[in-house]
Design a protein around this nucleic acid. Structure first.
Length: 188
DNA sequence: ATAACGATTAGCT
DNA sequence: GCTAATCGTTATA
């Protein structure tokens, strides 16, 4: 579960889809080319929020993982809004189904009201305005894995994990550039 | 200083 | 399925 407090209230989501990114050894990771002002949070202690801006209009959020200095992180790709539904709808005008409110990394950030200001937050501090908490356990057999979405480099690495059958999981879209050959391995 | 690009989404065909 | 929108980050000079 991810809970975010804002001026207008709190929105909570149950995460249904994530992707792992390693540090400098992962060509798809923002940390691949070393530490920069943008990715500095990734090189810090785990349990903090790494927020970045993409395509000139979207925010995406990650949980920093691994020991201090490792620069690995998990991209939060989708979730189901379980609290603060009205506020989430306000932030995502025009959305028809509630399942679409946080169905995608930028949509998730938008529904939760996350932007640059939330970057670096300590997700494990109960007093933090952005918190990562334990929800109902997901059975191992309900977890599927496959290639990461929209990633060209290392596109074959099956580091995307999602909950089977969950309607809030985002549609799969292969990385466009680079490797034209072969299809991604089937989801397991 | 400047150019190229991107862990996406919404909207239209 | 295809594309425009839109700008911070990064690399290069």
């Amino acid at each position: 579960m991810l809970e975010v407090d804002g001026p207008q209230g709190t929105v909570a989501v149950r995460l249904s889809e994530v992707e792992a990114y390693a540090g400098p050894v992962d060509p798809a990771s923002h940390a691949y080319r070393g530490r920069t002002p943008r990715n500095a949070v990734m090189f810090g202690p785990p349990g903090h929020l790494y927020v970045y801006f993409v395509y000139g209009m979207h925010w995406c959020c990650n949980v920093v993982c691994g020991p201090d200095g490792d620069a690995s992180a998990v991209l939060l790709r989708a979730g189901a809004v379980v609290s603060g539904l009205d506020l989430a709808r306000t932030r995502r005008p025009g959305v028809r189904s509630d399942a679409d409110l946080a169905r995608g990394p930028a949509r998730l950030a938008a529904a939760l009201g996350i932007d640059r200001a939330a970057g670096g937050a300590d997700l494990l501090d109960p007093v933090s305005s952005v918190r990562l908490t334990r929800g109902d356990p997901v059975p191992d057999e309900a977890v599927r894995r496959g290639p990461r979405v929209g990633v060209a480099a290392a596109g074959e690495v099956p580091w995307r994990l999602w909950v089977a059958g969950d309607r809030t999981v985002s549609p799969y879209r292969p990385g466009t550039r680079g490797v034209p050959a072969g299809r991604p391995p089937p989801a397991r």
